[in-house]
Protein backbone atom coordinates (compact mmCIF):
# COMPACT_ATOMS: atom_id res chain seq x y z
CA UNK A 1 0.00 0.00 0.00
CA UNK A 2 1.36 3.39 -0.94
CA UNK A 3 1.47 6.36 1.43
CA UNK A 4 -1.10 8.14 -0.75
CA UNK A 5 -3.48 5.18 -0.23
CA UNK A 6 -3.04 5.53 3.53
CA UNK A 7 -4.00 9.21 3.32
CA UNK A 8 -7.09 8.34 1.25
CA UNK A 9 -8.14 5.36 3.35
CA UNK A 10 -7.96 7.40 6.55
CA UNK A 11 -9.55 10.55 5.03
CA UNK A 12 -6.31 11.99 6.32
CA UNK A 13 -4.52 15.28 6.02
CA UNK A 14 -0.92 15.12 4.88
CA UNK A 15 1.00 17.64 7.02
CA UNK A 16 4.39 16.98 5.45
CA UNK A 17 5.98 14.39 3.17
CA UNK A 18 4.63 15.08 -0.35
CA UNK A 19 7.72 13.37 -1.73
CA UNK A 20 6.88 10.10 0.03
CA UNK A 21 3.38 9.61 -1.40
CA UNK A 22 4.52 6.81 -3.69
CA UNK A 23 6.59 4.98 -1.06
CA UNK A 24 5.37 1.43 -0.50
CA UNK A 25 4.33 0.54 3.06
CA UNK A 26 4.11 -3.10 4.07
CA UNK A 27 3.42 -3.14 7.82
CA UNK A 28 1.70 -1.07 10.48
CA UNK A 29 2.32 -0.55 14.16
CA UNK A 30 -0.39 1.03 16.32
CA UNK A 31 0.90 2.13 19.73
CA UNK A 32 0.93 4.98 22.21
CA UNK A 33 3.86 3.53 24.14
CA UNK A 34 7.12 4.21 22.38
CA UNK A 35 8.91 1.25 23.96
CA UNK A 36 6.31 -0.97 22.30
CA UNK A 37 7.19 0.66 19.00
CA UNK A 38 10.86 -0.09 19.65
CA UNK A 39 10.05 -3.73 20.27
CA UNK A 40 8.50 -3.84 16.78
CA UNK A 41 10.97 -5.03 14.19
CA UNK A 42 9.67 -4.67 10.65
CA UNK A 43 10.58 -2.79 7.50
CA UNK A 44 8.54 -0.22 5.56
CA UNK A 45 6.33 0.57 8.52
CA UNK A 46 3.63 3.15 9.18
CA UNK A 47 3.27 4.12 12.84
CA UNK A 48 -0.21 4.98 14.09
CA UNK A 49 -0.22 6.77 17.42
CA UNK A 50 -2.19 9.10 19.64
CA UNK A 51 0.97 10.30 21.32
CA UNK A 52 1.53 13.84 20.15
CA UNK A 53 4.96 14.75 21.48
CA UNK A 54 8.46 15.00 20.00
CA UNK A 55 9.29 11.49 21.21
CA UNK A 56 6.87 9.98 18.70
CA UNK A 57 8.81 11.59 15.84
CA UNK A 58 12.17 10.75 17.40
CA UNK A 59 11.23 7.12 18.07
CA UNK A 60 9.98 6.72 14.51
CA UNK A 61 13.17 8.27 13.15
CA UNK A 62 15.34 5.91 15.22
CA UNK A 63 13.31 2.94 13.98
CA UNK A 64 13.56 4.06 10.32
CA UNK A 65 9.79 4.56 10.30
CA UNK A 66 9.15 7.21 7.68
CA UNK A 67 5.38 7.60 8.01
CA UNK A 68 3.54 8.62 11.19
CA UNK A 69 -0.25 8.87 11.48
CA UNK A 70 -1.76 10.79 14.40
CA UNK A 71 -5.17 9.35 15.25
CA UNK A 72 -8.24 10.67 17.10
CA UNK A 73 -8.16 14.04 15.37
CA UNK A 74 -4.90 15.03 16.99
CA UNK A 75 -2.69 17.42 15.10
CA UNK A 76 0.97 17.80 16.02
CA UNK A 77 2.33 21.33 16.55
CA UNK A 78 4.34 23.02 13.81
CA UNK A 79 7.74 22.39 15.41
CA UNK A 80 7.06 18.64 15.46
CA UNK A 81 6.00 18.67 11.82
CA UNK A 82 9.18 20.63 11.05
CA UNK A 83 11.32 18.03 12.86
CA UNK A 84 9.61 15.28 10.85
CA UNK A 85 10.25 17.21 7.65
CA UNK A 86 13.95 17.60 8.51
CA UNK A 87 14.09 13.84 9.08
CA UNK A 88 12.50 13.18 5.68
CA UNK A 89 9.30 11.76 7.13
CA UNK A 90 5.62 11.98 6.21
CA UNK A 91 3.07 13.03 8.83
CA UNK A 92 -0.64 12.37 8.47
CA UNK A 93 -3.50 13.41 10.76
CA UNK A 94 -6.81 11.51 10.79
CA UNK A 95 -10.09 11.99 12.61
CA UNK A 96 -10.45 8.23 13.13
CA UNK A 97 -9.71 6.53 16.45
CA UNK A 98 -6.83 4.07 16.72
CA UNK A 99 -9.23 1.13 16.33
CA UNK A 100 -10.97 2.53 13.28
CA UNK A 101 -7.77 3.75 11.64
CA UNK A 102 -6.07 0.35 12.05
CA UNK A 103 -9.25 -1.42 10.92
CA UNK A 104 -9.57 0.69 7.79
CA UNK A 105 -5.93 0.08 6.80
CA UNK A 106 -6.28 -3.65 7.43
CA UNK A 107 -9.46 -3.79 5.40
CA UNK A 108 -7.74 -1.92 2.60
CA UNK A 109 -5.11 -4.65 2.43
CA UNK A 110 -2.30 -3.59 4.78
CA UNK A 111 -1.72 -6.81 6.67
CA UNK A 112 1.90 -6.78 7.88
CA UNK A 113 2.30 -6.55 11.63
CA UNK A 114 4.37 -8.03 14.39
CA UNK A 115 3.39 -10.76 16.79
CA UNK A 116 5.01 -11.72 20.07
CA UNK A 117 4.12 -14.64 22.27
CA UNK A 118 2.74 -13.70 25.69
CA UNK A 119 5.37 -14.22 28.34
Amino acid sequence: MKVRDIVTTLDGVLLTGEGLLDVDIQAACGADLMSDVMAFVKENVVLLTGLVNPQSIRTADLMDIRVVVYVRGKTPPKDMVAEAERNGMAVIATRYSMFLACGRLYEAGLRGGGTREPR
Binding site: D32, L33, M34, S35, D36, M38, A39, T49, L51, N53, Q55, S56, T59
Partner: peptide, 17 residues
Protein backbone atom coordinates in the same frame (compact mmCIF):
# COMPACT_ATOMS: atom_id res chain seq x y z
CA UNK B 1 6.27 9.65 32.11
CA UNK B 2 3.59 7.22 30.93
CA UNK B 3 1.69 10.11 29.44
CA UNK B 4 4.86 10.87 27.45
CA UNK B 5 4.83 7.36 25.97
CA UNK B 6 7.39 5.69 28.23
CA UNK B 7 7.51 3.94 31.58
CA UNK B 8 5.94 0.68 30.48
CA UNK B 9 8.78 -1.41 31.88
CA UNK B 10 10.13 -2.26 28.43
CA UNK B 11 13.31 -0.19 28.45
CA UNK B 12 15.86 -2.61 29.90
CA UNK B 13 14.34 -5.67 28.16
CA UNK B 14 14.45 -3.78 24.84
CA UNK B 15 18.09 -2.89 25.48
CA UNK B 16 18.95 -6.50 26.24
CA UNK B 17 17.15 -7.71 23.13
Amino acid sequence: IREMGFGAGMGLPNMKR
